[in-house]
């Protein structure tokens, strides 16, 4: 048998990923058809991301509103499992995230890996909270009368989150996880370069049994999208994490949010995303329901 002549493999052009939005469990392009270039801190071009418009924000709120009752009705145990599943999926894509974060944030690979690990640990930490919130935040109250009087935390509804620009993955995790663990649905705005890890995080969520619409991710400009979300009457709460503390934008958003009494989490300058957050981002998105149940009837 004669040996086949050695042939050099044909040159292959790589398939590049299209970064789209994550709305209602699907990955649509922006309704506006716009995109923006994402560059590394060095100025080097990385990829184009979809630039969400106000109509994408409206669609995302609609998707979140549709998904929220089912998510709130799921048992706390089930919600915890799904958050844990997100951590599992993240762990499997650890290297992918590390490389992406290193690229968009201009970090050393070691530091990027450390951030991914911190994000994974945070998902696990919040997963553990899901079935403990009602014990810690609820109460069986003593009342002067023949009643059982029970207070329990209830989700507030649809939460709009303005994620910080950095740290990308840890920042997104730290605003999304505490909002959804109690049964809310969210619309998260991932600004500028944060858009790339955000969409990849969307892919993780789409494969983690998280019902479509519970988390919606818009990439683009916070300054463009935030006013529409802050004034949207079907949004119940607003996390301003990604807005500069004390800025005019932060003030305007709070004024707009007052129209329908949204709960607002104010930004704080120099917030440490690595520190233990406690329940500081969980409690604002839960309302206390108190039930009086007569005894002996």
């Amino acid at each position: 048998m004669s040996k086949k002549p050695a042939v050099a493999p044909a040159p292959r052009s790589s398939v590049r990923k299209t970064y789209k939005l994550y709305i209602g469990g699907a990955f649509p392009r922006s309704e506006s058809g716009r995109s923006y270039p994402v560059t590394a801190p060095s100025g080097e071009f990385i990829a184009n991301a979809a630039q969400a418009s106000r109509k994408d924000a409206r669609d995302a709120v609609r998707a979140a509103r549709a998904a929220q009752p089912g998510w709130a009705k799921a048992t706390a145990y089930n919600r915890g499992q799904i958050l844990y599943r997100i951590a599992e999926m993240l762990e499997e894509r650890r290297d992918q995230f590390a490389h992406q974060i290193a690229e968009v944030e201009g970090l050393e690979l070691d530091a990027a890996h450390a951030q991914v690990d911190a994000a994974i640990d945070r998902w696990v930490w919040y997963a553990g909270w899901s079935d403990k919130l009602s014990q810690v935040l609820g109460a069986a109250n003593s009342v002067a009368g023949p009643y059982w009087n029970i207070s329990s935390p209830e989700p507030t509804g649809v939460v709009a989150l303005l994620a910080p620009a950095t740290p990308t993955l840890l920042g997104l995790t730290s605003v999304i996880a505490p909002a959804i663990v109690g049964g809310n649905a969210v619309v998260a705005v991932a600004p500028d370069a944060c858009g790339l890890p955000a969409v990849t995080l969307g892919e993780v969520m789409a494969t983690s049994d998280l019902p479509g619409g519970v988390v919606n991710i818009l990439t683009g400009s916070t300054a463009e999208l935030a006013p529409w979300l802050a004034s949207h009457l079907d949004v119940n709460a607003l996390d301003l994490a990604g807005v500069e503390a004390g800025s005019e934008l932060a003030r305007d958003l709070e004024v707009a949010a007052a129209e329908n009494l949204k709960r607002v989490v104010r930004p704080s300058a120099g917030y440490d995303w690595e520190a233990d957050p406690g329940l500081s981002r969980v409690k604002p998105f839960l309302e206390t329901k108190t039930v009086w149940h007569p005894i002996g009837i």
Binding site: V61, W228, S231, H232, L233, D234
Partner: peptide, 9 residues
């Protein structure tokens, strides 16, 4: 009004 309304209203 220029702002998005919702089914609550």
């Amino acid at each position: 009004t220029g702002v998005y309304s919702g089914p609550d209203y």
